[in-house]
Write a protein that binds this DNA or RNA. Sequence first.
DNA 1: CGAACCCTTGAGTCGGTTCAAAGCAGGTGG
DNA 2: CCACCTGCTTTGAACCGACTCAAGGGTTCG
Lengths: 252, 252
Amino acid sequence: MQQSASIPIRDISFKQLKAACSTCTLQELCLPVGMSLEELAQLERLVNQGVKVKKGEALYRAGEPFKSLYAIRTGFFKTVVLSEDGREQVTGFHMSGELMGLDAISTENHTCHAIALEDSEICEMPYQRLEDLCRAIPALQRHLYKVMSREIVRDHGVMMLLGNMKAEERLAAFLLNLSQRFAARGYSASGFHLRMTREEIGSFLGLKLETVSRTLSRFQDEGLITVQNKYIELKNLTGLKTMLSGCAGNQA
Amino acid sequence: MQQSASIPIRDISFKQLKAACSTCTLQELCLPVGMSLEELAQLERLVNQGVKVKKGEALYRAGEPFKSLYAIRTGFFKTVVLSEDGREQVTGFHMSGELMGLDAISTENHTCHAIALEDSEICEMPYQRLEDLCRAIPALQRHLYKVMSREIVRDHGVMMLLGNMKAEERLAAFLLNLSQRFAARGYSASGFHLRMTREEIGSFLGLKLETVSRTLSRFQDEGLITVQNKYIELKNLTGLKTMLSGCAGNQA
DNA sequence: CGAACCCTTGAGTCGGTTCAAAGCAGGTGG
DNA sequence: CCACCTGCTTTGAACCGACTCAAGGGTTCG
């Protein structure tokens, strides 16, 4: 869905244009930050924008050879690492504009599963070519380093959460983090639909699903939130914030 | 070592020679992997090799502006993130050849403290110049991406540890990981000196210091290890390994 | 030699897990 | 369009692993 190096931008068909980085509303959240139009065009040329992943399906699985990084256009994913004896740990939930697959760069193989939690559409970026392009476009190189660094910072936040916080605090931090990320995408910060099950939340937060359920119920009793199945409304943001009276913050 | 493009080798003083990347025994663990002699010389030119950090001192602190990445030449560090209400979480222990400061790339400020656990010597690499050099040296660019990716994988291992494992398993995984990393540096895999306190181990593993102490004592009673204050000897590697019957593995 | 810090061990407590049962929601096929 | 079925969620009761509190001994370093 993109053109060769010799064909000018305007030859892009409407459908392609719609999907292209230069018109993508996620530009500021995704990879092409601070790039010129000319540079954007170069990036577009290597992006495969059409990949669809149905709910429940894997974008990639641990052990598969690493070929590409993936940016989420629409949809919602979880990433899961597995221990040898079969235990699963959800390492993150990922929404539009976020990059997945960074962990695979080190080993040339994916180290986790990326599972769609709803029907999703993703942009595939062949890593080899992306790396080459980074050398040509300093802004791209810099931004990819930043994105990876941000993932490291996020992971440290999760460690703080798992290592230091009580169940209540973990849930509060989790809800506030989701809220903030939805808001950054133009959705409501106070009401949203959870795409994941209680068990997946629990796996991410180091809790059992029953504890997640109980804690949400308690939050509701306390008037902090309302819960209707998977729809959550945050009723008292400051209450939630004081609940986790201090924690690094970004965790998912 | 080698020369800048224009200055011949022999102009470099002995002291500089001693510390240079091209003669460094940590080459294969550190940043200059797969680089030519010519490229090594370029890297050396930007590295400030003399930085000493005394036990207990900070190489950098959370909030400080980000200027450089740091490679450990000799010594041992912990990195610590802080929550707003003052809780501390040790996010890792770092030994020779490892890079620190990657988390700061995203925000232009350090997000954690790096504290020396013994007198240490580090190589400072101004990030701006390093980034520029990455564009000129593909092997360097690629390796820096890999190092960051490896840090992400490591963090996911810690999440598995904190989210899924029992105290015994965490300790076993911790000891085995240290063992492996000492071995990779030519030290004994079965006997080593812990540089950190029980409390720091506990902070890293999401346990209280009493639990760390008790669990080490139990391991000793079971003949898995011997403990003499901070000196640990692993007596039964397979026993330790079966203890954590499966977990992603690399965590610190 | 003293002071500060670190480590060990014990006893009691508690937050979160485990086990169990019942209610609900959403999707599928008849 | 309804009935069923599967998977998800809620809630209760009992249990247990790790934490808290406390005391004593050891180590290190000035």
